[in-house]
Nucleic acid binder design. Structure first.
Lengths: 133, 133
DNA sequence: ATATCTGTTATATAATATATATAACAAGTA
DNA sequence: TACTTGTTATATATATTATATAACAGATAT
């Protein structure tokens, strides 16, 4: 896999892992229906504990990203999770904070939107193969 | 003050407080040079411990938002913190995650940019008074 | 001078979150 | 039978978060 954990980071390992898997799905590095490594395998690859991987997998299952089959392990769901009210509220509040912080520091609306646009474009180009790098 | 703490939240109190102060500065609810309540006063108002407020104030001082005078207390700095490389890297990585999450859930680039634009506009209109609500 | 207000420092305590280690289990597969 | 899944349980260690209490230096107001 493509996982890189920063053991010096303030962010918990299980959360770093969770975010990288979501990024992986968004980029298409992880395709829908694709099998993920077993909790033991991934834990060994990264050099962390099996329970930490298990925690991440279960959170992602709860969020609607993964399906977990007791015998086959975890796979990326065919259908991605919904945009419910809770998600929107969270997104709004998170963006409100990030934008407030950027705004205070003098980042203009245009700069900020450009940054978001670039990130979005980079995702969409990655979809369906490695046409661009 | 305008602080509302959610004691059920997973987010630490000191971090909720930190974000609300940053939002307050961005909105202009807290003006540059303005005095903040003393750590004891604010702690009492919110119903939390003095040290929790103190922690937030010191983080915000470290980040360049506040100046703390031992005798007068904390005030909003006249000059806002810089956009250094560390901040940009953090912002990028944070947005990359948020956008990946939104993208997976089917939020289009246009929807996302519109949301950011609205949040930005709302901030800018709040500046310098209550012209709009 | 005295009382009162700042932030600061120190110490202690409790609860929770994070991460690991080890072992065992049920169920499916080779 | 041996090996693979995730799962469950137990235990332990460490770090984070939050609180409580007390005291201190320095400035300010009465």
């Amino acid at each position: 896999m493509f996982i890189k954990i920063d053991f010096e980071s303030d962010m918990p390992i299980y959360e770093q892992l969770r975010r990288q898997i979501i990024k992986g799905i968004a980029k298409g590095d992880l395709e829908k229906g694709e099998q993920l490594p077993s909790v033991r395998q991934l834990a060994e690859d990264i050099g962390i504990n099996l329970h930490t991987v298990n925690k991440t997998y279960n959170i992602l299952k709860e969020e609607g990203y993964l399906a977990i089959d007791r015998r086959k392990g975890a796979m990326v769901k065919d259908i991605m999770p919904m945009v419910d009210e809770e998600y929107i509220n969270n997104l709004y509040s998170e963006l409100e904070y990030i934008i407030a912080n950027s705004y205070c520091r003098g980042i203009s609306k245009e700069e900020f939107l450009k940054l978001c646009e670039d990130i979005y474009d980079r995702l969409e180009n990655k979809q369906g193969g490695e046409k661009y790098d």
